[in-house]
Design a protein around this nucleic acid. Structure first.
Lengths: 221, 221
DNA sequence: GTCTATATAATGATAGAC
DNA sequence: GTCTATCATTATATAGAC
């Protein structure tokens, strides 16, 4: 319906007030850029890189799609900035290492709000695009794996941090993206206990080559 | 280049031999359907539901895109069948439960071939599409969670099976889709040990409400 | 600073020729 | 049984008006 929009509705309206008090039209560049970015955070987290168009992101910010390219250069560059911002909150990995597994497990079972920016959801929804995956790989390494590895003692901290994130991400995938029934319906307290039990072998490392030089870590990812 | 294809190359060729011995043109419907399906298995595993077009799938099978709709009805119906076939191999979850964690961990670290059909890769690359996610949810529950839960004793077998698959899937995501450096470079034997250590708390269940009725499981997912 | 209008390309699906 | 040709839609990105 309305195949090409009626061309006789607004071609020569007298321009009443130059739209100086329009509800959603920021006046300066910085505010417009920020509005677009905030819209992108939510949209990419909800639908992923390929799942949302520039028109949708711009429309939610109250502007048209052209401003996305004007302020960010391209969709890919905007995505890169959105990823960086979404991965900036590392509070999930702060605190003492002893209770890390329990805290993260407890935090993960509460993440069901589909309408808020979320680094794991953003990654899961965008990983299928190779370009997006490359951006996500770097953000994951520098903003998540790195800080998390810093909390872990012992050997192979980067590898153990990555396995830690693998479970967290996989759980989010099955529960909130795929919608696995056993995880969606499970008792939350018990679920958190089981996740913590899986994470703990990573935090208090019992593996690695038992009899070796006790001081030999020079390789950092 | 070649904006609309030169229209003077082959409009009235004399049709030399009716193409009865063309290298990639199956003669009967069943063979053509199977060729398309096999092409779809590989393509969907590599690029996901949204990442591959009908023309590409058909071209790899040696036919044109119209036959996809002819034999499967729509892209979505073809995807559903491809998912079912790709999830049909449950040999990963066969054998004794005692060594399940070690066997699966060992099997996962060897899955790096991007050019073969793979249920986890297929799921990871297609989960961002809501329609594909719904199809994957059902296949995962009936063809993976179910058989795996059947191998586990004790309580909440469906939930523990889902957590088991969460780690396996998350590991595949970070290592082979995102391309996390610590997981891609890690020593494989040590990696398998750590994954098995995370899976074992699920196989030999130590959680669940300790003091309760020992016989009370009537709810099946 | 923001818009309308458009360029270019790719998608899934379909009609009809052979 | 399979094709060429085309439909309608959508995508990102850009040109130029105001």
């Amino acid at each position: 319906m309305a195949k090409k929009k009626l061309p006789a509705a607004k071609p020569n309206s007298p321009a009443p007030a130059k739209a100086s008090s329009s509800p959603k039209r920021p006046r300066n560049a910085a505010a417009t850029r920020e509005a677009i970015l905030q819209s992108a955070l939510v949209a990419f987290s909800r639908a992923g890189y390929d799942g949302v168009g520039l028109r949708e992101i711009a429309g939610e910010a109250g502007v048209t799609a052209i401003l996305v390219n004007r302020y960010f250069g391209s969709k890919e560059e905007m995505f890169a900035e959105a990823v960086k911002v979404t991965f900036a909150d590392t509070s999930l990995f702060s605190g003492d290492a002893a209770s890390l597994a329990d805290r993260v497990a407890q935090a993960m079972i509460g993440r069901t709000d589909q309408s808020r920016p979320d680094p794991f959801r953003l990654m899961l929804h965008s990983a299928s695009n190779p370009r997006a995956a490359a951006i996500l790989r770097e953000a994951l390494a520098r903003q998540f794996e790195g800080p998390l590895a810093g909390m872990l003692g012992g050997r192979d901290t980067n590898e153990r941090a990555a396995l830690f994130l693998a479970l967290v991400t996989g759980f989010d995938l099955l529960r909130n993206v795929i919608g696995s029934a056993p995880l969606a319906r499970a008792d939350e307290a018990l679920l958190a206990k089981r996740i913590a039990a899986m994470l703990k072998p990573l935090v208090d490392d019992k593996h690695g080559k038992k009899a070796e030089k006790p001081q030999q870590l020079t390789l950092f990812g």
